[in-house]
Each structure stands twice: as C-alpha cells, then as structure tokens.
C-alpha cells in the first residue's frame, strides 16, 4: 500500500469543493484528489498514493517508473479489487500455495 504511482493529469474538476482530476496511469484511469498540488495543470505528471497526488514528477521519470511497475505487475496489485484478490488467491489449480 505504500506504493506511489506516477500518472498524467487528463482533466481537472471539483467535487464537494475539493480539487480532483482524472489521472492516466499508463492506460488505467482513476479519479484522484489534486488538493495537495494546487498548481498542477492538465498534462502534468504526478505521483499518486492512495488516490492522492503528493508530488510532481517529470514526464521522462514518470514513464520509466510506470514501465518498470508494469513489468513487475505492481500496477494490477495497486488498483482496486486486484489487491484484494491478490491477498486472497494464492493457490494454483491443485490447491497448492503459490509464492507471490
């Protein structure tokens, strides 16, 4: 859960008075809170942790990190139900434990 993933801000909107944005993480798009980066604009890259943009990052670094996270399967692990499934499904068909 400590993972922070870089993504690109696609648009910015407001919900309940809080600055939010749609952020694209190499194809996976999520609504993210941008309240802590008041200056960030559409097209910028940011590092996102549990649904919050915490710092800005440049494009090249963002791409490099995303690529390595993808290779390591960390993107699936981080987003939504996958982490829950990963926590619960660790057996192969024969019912043997599979080290993750």
């Amino acid at each position: 859960m400590c993972l922070a993933i870089p993504g690109q801000v696609k648009n910015i909107f407001e919900a309940d008075g809080i600055r939010m944005g749609r952020v694209n993480f190499g194809g996976i798009v999520k609504d993210v809170c941008l309240a802590y980066l008041p200056d960030i604009t559409v097209g910028d890259y940011t590092i996102v942790h549990v649904g919050f943009a915490i710092s800005r990052v440049d494009e090249e670094a963002a791409h490099r990190t995303l690529e390595s996270f993808r290779e390591l399967g960390l993107l699936d692990e981080e987003f939504g139900v996958e982490s829950y499934e990963a926590a619960t499904q660790q057996e192969d068909e024969a019912g043997n434990e599979v080290p993750r």
């Binding site: 400590c2 809170c33 802590y36 942790h49 549990v50 919050f52």
Partner: peptide, 12 residues
C-alpha cells in the same frame, strides 16, 4: 493506518 505518505489522504 500508514506513515506520513498516507496521512494526508486520511486527513482529507
């Protein structure tokens, strides 16, 4: 739960 990284999200 969490360290300083997660705290701002929980605070909000």
């Amino acid at each position: 739960i969490g360290f300083e990284t997660t705290a701002p999200a929980n605070a909000m």
